[in-house]
Nucleic acid binder design. Structure first.
Lengths: 156, 156
DNA sequence: ATAGCTGCAAAAACTTTGCGCCCTC
DNA sequence: GAGGGCGCAAAGTTTTTGCAGCTAT
């Protein structure tokens, strides 16, 4: 009955209003990285009594509580996704704008080491790759590597 | 007589107005990552006939020409730095907001490999670490590692 | 009961743009 | 001289906020 993010709100003692429940549900079900406008659109579909201002206030609150993470993929507006265990990164297809998520333990380790070497403790970090799909091979068979699907997670 | 970035503008056939020359000089001399407001302040000191609109137009133009790179370190406003050879990254001190630059060839290689494994050719990328200065050791001597200075470059 | 949310609309913060004059090539 | 750049101010975007009423705890 309560969405995953809704439960996290309750755990942290947030007051659960109707609006908040709806926004939490939209966020829990999102497989992508919606901006505020898009969140508002989806939330308004479920309950038209929601205003954009509330969406702004809510994502801000949830970000402060560590439930959400704000992303910047270029294009001016902030985009959001639920905080998950384990770091993951984003590859943005510069042709289509599609975002592919992936994990990489080697990378996670490397940057912890870099921060330590500079005399810091890592608080958080971000990595975004902007890339272009490599044209398929003409002579060899197409690459066998299973391509990560948008919204899913590619483990390495 | 002409600043480094001024020369790059000329190479690319840009018309060199007085304002552009001043902005190019400010950018050439910047050791940090100023936002538009700060660039405007510095430029206006050298020549008060400059408007913010021109600064916006100029950084946009120079970014399109590949002379400048736009950064987002959180805090809402875009920040700029001259494009340089070789990738480098940023560590932002979450307490002070200071930005430390560093290079890391191992990291550069790793992400090229990641992009390739996902079936893409890397176009560009970004990495930002948010970290907190590690408290000095109480028993041992302070860490001998030479800490990178703000604005300079720490090679690894 | 009451601290905290909400909608609405105004405003703030950042960036772009239309227009007529001016300058560089 | 001609195409492009400039200042100014107006407008566009995205996000925040004041206020009066409403609600979850």
């Amino acid at each position: 009955m309560e969405s995953r993010i809704g439960r996290m709100c309750i755990e942290r003692g947030l007051k659960m209003t109707g609006q908040r429940r709806v926004i939490a549900r939209v966020l829990s079900e999102a497989q992508d990285h919606p901006d505020v406008e898009e969140l508002y659109r989806r939330a308004a579909t479920l309950d038209s009594r929601i205003s954009v201002a509330t969406v702004y206030r809510t994502v801000r609150l949830l970000e402060e509580k560590g439930i959400l993470e704000r992303r910047d993929f270029g294009g001016g507006r902030a985009r959001y996704e639920a905080t998950e265990e384990g770091d993951h990164y984003h590859l943005i297809d510069v042709e289509t704008g599609k975002v592919i998520e992936f994990e990489d333990e080697e990378h996670a380790e490397l940057i912890r080491r870099i921060a330590r070497d500079l005399g810091f403790d890592l608080v958080s970090h971000r990595l975004e790759l902007f890339a272009r799909k490599r044209p398929a091979e003409t002579k060899e068979a197409p690459p066998a590597t299973p391509t990560a699907r948008t919204g899913s997670r590619s483990k390495r």
